[in-house]
């Protein structure tokens, strides 16, 4: 299940040698197309670990469940802070659920 790329938003990390999603993908799957927009080269191999989604500074990536497994359209959007992460989950009926917690240090 490859991440869906919002080609409007994706700036290919300004055509750097490797975009941040390309740098981080554990499966070596994200890469830049000729027009310098990110895409997943082997959609079948994606583990949807969402590392790329978290890394994208433009918010241009989104993980979607393939239709064969789940209905249209549910969303799960992480937002990364310095030591926090929030998740917004919107199910197919539009129900919104939110989660937030500290993901690094300073729990006291």
């Amino acid at each position: 299940m490859p991440p869906k790329v919002d080609r409007e938003k994706c700036d290919g990390c300004k055509a750097e040698k490797e975009s941040l999603c390309e740098q981080i993908c554990p499966g070596d799957l994200m890469t830049l197309a000729e027009d310098k927009k990110a895409y997943c080269r082997m959609p079948r191999d994606c583990w949807d670990c969402m590392s790329c989604i978290k890394a994208c500074p433009k918010g241009a990536l989104e993980t979607r469940i393939p239709y064969q497994l789940g209905y249209h359209v549910a969303k799960l959007i992480p937002m990364m802070g310095t030591n926090t992460i929030t998740w917004t989950c919107i199910d197919i009926n539009g129900k919104v659920e939110r989660f937030q917690y500290i993901n690094r240090g300073m729990l006291d």
């Binding site: 500074p57 937002m79 990364m80 802070g81 310095t82 926090t84 992460i85 929030t86 937030q100 917690y101």
Partner: peptide, 13 residues
Amino acid sequence: VNNALVADALAFG
């Protein structure tokens, strides 16, 4: 101001 700090602020309500 890094966006991550803004995200932190929002995460903390």
